[in-house]
């Protein structure tokens, strides 16, 4: 749920990075964090286990610049990917303005990707959202690895709605900002459509 603050003249939006465990969600945020000017970002928070698996969420606040005199602020969140953290995923989706689905391109992760998309749909629906109705983009990550599915295959399985999609290598940053820009753009476009 975007938050327009007329007093501070800023608008806040929430973007959630979703996807199966180890697909690269946290890595996306880390890359964005590393490559953003200090004055445009807040602290990145990772609630992780001792082995660096996301336990609850990662959080990164970003300021993108001004539109019509309003500062645009984006709060990026990731969810924990493991199946058993479903309760936490639901909580993080509350009030979401846009979703990035990070897919793991490796052939043996295809099923995990498909399960995760289904889970995303279910969890959104539980809160009265429809995936078709919210700003949504997809990143096919880990394109640098050898045993990966082709983009056509990934598209066919994971992108039936034909939303904007990108190839990524989050570890080196390929596609990371393109993905973020695409979802931010959709979120802002959505704001134009609906007044409060």
């Amino acid at each position: 749920m975007s938050f327009i603050n007329y007093m501070a003249r800023e608008i806040n939006c929430k973007i959630v990075y979703y996807g199966p465990g180890l697909c690269g969600k946290t890595t996306n945020l880390q890359y964005i964090y590393e490559r953003t000017n200090p004055d445009a970002k807040g602290k990145m928070i990772s609630l992780a286990t001792e082995t660096d698996r996301t336990l609850f969420f990662d959080f990164l606040p970003l300021a993108l610049g001004e539109i019509r005199g309003f500062k645009t602020r984006f709060h990026l969140y990731t969810v924990p990917g493991q199946v058993f953290y479903d309760a936490s995923r639901k909580l993080i989706l509350k009030g979401v303005d846009g979703v990035v689905f990070v897919a793991d391109s490796q052939i043996d992760r295809m099923e995990a990707n498909e399960e995760s998309v289904e889970n995303l749909k279910t969890n959104l629906e539980e809160q009265g959202y429809k995936l078709e109705k919210i700003p949504y983009v997809i990143q096919y990550n880990k394109r640098d690895l050898p045993e990966v599915a082709t983009v056509e295959e990934l598209r066919e399985k994971l992108n039936p709605m034909n939303v904007p999609d990108f190839e990524g290598v989050a570890r080196t940053g390929v596609g990371v900002f393109d993905t973020l820009k695409a979802v931010a753009k959709l979120v802002l476009t959505e704001l134009r459509k609906g007044g409060p």
């Binding site: 610049g65 019509r68 931010a184 007044g195």
Partner: peptide
Amino acid sequence: KVADPGADSPFAEITDEDIDNLFND
């Protein structure tokens, strides 16, 4: 007050250009 449709959003009028400009640096 927010539920009142009389309240205008400052974003109703933004253009694609406005949005693109955000990313131009």
